[in-house]
Amino acid sequence: MSIWVIIPISLPVFTITGIWVVYAMALYNQHVCPVDNWLYNQSCEEKLSLQRGPELCCTLDNVPLISKCGTLPPESCFFSLICSTGSFMVILIGLLRYAHVIEKHQNCVLNTAGLSTGWICAAGLIMVGNFQAIISL
């Protein structure tokens, strides 16, 4: 068995774990509300970062979306690292798959389309990870 088998397995393990770590960092820094808080209010007196105690008044701006969790520092740095590393792994997995298929079936249009589609997705992931924008509704 080849050691290259570890790369496709480690991609989802690494990225899913990393996204949960980013969420935990954003929750610890009170940049987002907990997932189990389903009561969002439009009129809270204080910002989330100024509130203390077990009961937090959350607005729709504090919904724990992936992009919201990775917007503010310090979790934005870790989010960017996860996205960049994940996109590199997608590029590597796509290239290894392309080489494997081309070895078995010579030149195939679907194989080339799969490689280019994977690299386009990886480029999009790099853009998401490195150019986070704070969007207020």
Results as ranks from 00 to 15, higher is better:
residue 56 L to E: 03
residue 56 L to N: 11
residue 56 L to D: 08
residue 56 L to C: 04
residue 57 C to Y: 14
residue 62 N to M: 10
residue 62 N to C: 05
residue 62 N to Y: 14
residue 63 V to Y: 15
residue 63 V to A: 14
residue 63 V to I: 13
residue 64 P to C: 01
residue 65 L to F: 10
residue 67 S to C: 03
residue 68 K to E: 15
residue 69 C to K: 02
residue 69 C to D: 12
residue 70 G to W: 08
residue 70 G to I: 00
residue 71 T to Q: 03
residue 71 T to C: 06
residue 72 L to M: 08
residue 72 L to V: 02
residue 72 L to Q: 09
residue 72 L to Y: 11
residue 75 E to M: 10
residue 78 F to M: 04
residue 82 I to R: 01
residue 83 C to W: 11
residue 85 T to M: 05
residue 86 G to Y: 07
residue 87 S to M: 08
residue 87 S to T: 15
residue 88 F to S: 14
residue 88 F to C: 09
residue 91 I to M: 13
residue 93 I to K: 01
residue 96 L to D: 04
residue 97 R to Q: 13
residue 99 A to G: 00
residue 100 H to N: 11
residue 101 V to C: 11
residue 101 V to M: 12
residue 102 I to V: 09
residue 102 I to D: 05
residue 104 K to D: 12
residue 104 K to I: 07
residue 105 H to V: 06
residue 105 H to I: 10
residue 107 N to M: 10
residue 107 N to W: 11
residue 108 C to K: 07
residue 109 V to F: 02
residue 112 T to W: 05
residue 112 T to C: 06
residue 113 A to P: 02
residue 114 G to T: 04
residue 114 G to V: 06
residue 115 L to T: 01
residue 115 L to P: 00
residue 115 L to W: 00
residue 115 L to R: 01
residue 116 S to E: 02
residue 117 T to Y: 12
residue 117 T to Q: 12
residue 118 G to Y: 08
residue 118 G to T: 15
residue 120 I to F: 10
residue 122 A to T: 05
residue 122 A to L: 05
residue 122 A to H: 03
residue 124 G to R: 06
residue 125 L to D: 05
residue 126 I to E: 03
residue 127 M to R: 14
residue 128 V to M: 07
residue 129 G to S: 05
residue 129 G to D: 09
residue 129 G to M: 02
residue 130 N to T: 07
residue 131 F to P: 01
